[in-house]
Simulated assay, not measured.
Amino acid sequence: MTTLRIGTRGSALALTQTGTVADSLRTRTGVDTELVTITTDGDRSNEPLSRAGGAGLFTGALRDALLDGRCDVVVHSLKDLPTAPHPDLVVAAIPKRADARDALCARDGLTVDTLPAGARVGTGSPRRVAQLRARRPDLEVVDIRGNVDTRLGLVADGALDAVILAAAGLSRLSRTDVVTEFLDLDEWPTAPGQGALAVEVRRGEEQLVKALDHSSTRAVVDAERAVLALLEAGCSAPVGAHALIDSDLLFLSARVYSADGATVLTASHAAYWPDRDAPVEIAERAARELLDAGAADLMGPSA
C-alpha cells in the first residue's frame, strides 16, 4: 500500500480531527496519507437528533466506504459510534483523549448559573437538554443543528443567548476563546466517549493504525461506552458517563436523566487497574444499579 486513504466527514471539525490522525500516522509509521471526504446521513438531515435515527447517523456512510474499498481507514468522533460491535470492522486505535467536558458559549460572559430566567440556550443533544432542565428549569432550551460556526453564529447574531458545545471540538478548531464556562465533569458528565476519536479499519488490518492506540484512553472510554451498551441506550439517549484512572484504580460515574431533567439516577464504581477486565466489570455494576433503580423506564423510547 503506497498511500493510506483515510475516510472522513467533510465538516471543518471532522477534517481537522482526521488531519491530526493522518499527521500522527505519517510521523509514527512513515506512511503517506490521503483524505477521502464522505457525506453521511447526519450531514444531509436537519432533523433533531432525538428523531433523526440515532445510531449510525454520522458513521454509517463512513463504514460503507470502508467496506466497499473507497478508503482504508475511517475516523469517527467516538461518541457518534454505535456501541454494538461490527462483524467486519474494528476500532483498531483510540488516540489520547482530548478534553471530555461540555462548554457553554454565551453572550456577555454569562455562565449557566448567571443566565437570566427565560434565556434561550441551544443544543441538539437530549442529554444536554435534560441536564439544563435539571439545573435551570427556568431557561428556554432550543433544539438546534449545524456545525460549530453555525451554532456560534446564533449567539453572535442574538438569536440565542448561549449554546453548549463539546470542549474538544472547540479546542481542535482553536475556538476556545468563545467559551464562557467549562462544565465540570463531576456535576455535568458528558456523552460516553466524548473527546475521543475512533480509528476504524477492516477486521484483520488492525496493524495499519495500531501505533496510534492509547491504552488508558481506551480503558476509560470502554467503561463509559459499556454502560451505554448495557443500558441498551442509543447515542442520543439522556445518559452521561465519565471514567478516569487515578493511580491503580479505574473510576466510573454514570447518570441517567428523565427528558425533563426532573429525575436523575447516578451510579459510581471503581476497580483495580490495569486489570484488563476492569472497564467491563465496573460498567456492569453501574448499569445493574441504574437498571434496578428504574433507568429503563426513565429513558423511555430513547432506550
Rank of each mutant, 00 (worst) to 15 (best):
F182W: 05
D149N: 00
R133M: 12
L244C: 07
T37D: 05
I144E: 12
A166D: 14
S50L: 08
Y257V: 11
D213K: 02
V163D: 15
L89Y: 02
D102A: 15
A293D: 14
L115G: 00
R70S: 14
A167Y: 13
G195H: 03
T40G: 01
A296T: 10
T8P: 06
L165P: 05
S45E: 00
V256G: 07
A229F: 11
D32T: 01
S45Y: 00
P116W: 12
E200A: 00
H76P: 06
R255I: 07
S125T: 13
T2R: 13
T114R: 15
M299E: 11
V178E: 07
D102Q: 15
V209S: 09
A84E: 10
P87R: 02
V209M: 04
L132T: 09
A198Y: 12
R51T: 12
A162D: 15
D248H: 10
V256H: 11
R127K: 13
D41N: 14
P82R: 01
R26Q: 13
E47D: 14
D297K: 12
G124L: 12
A52L: 10
G234H: 03
V90I: 12
L152A: 12
D32M: 01
D275H: 02
T39R: 06
N46V: 10
R151C: 12
A295E: 13
A295W: 13
V209Q: 07
G195T: 02
A270F: 11
V220F: 10
L110F: 13
V178K: 01
D157R: 09
V256T: 15
V21E: 11
R136V: 09
V280C: 01
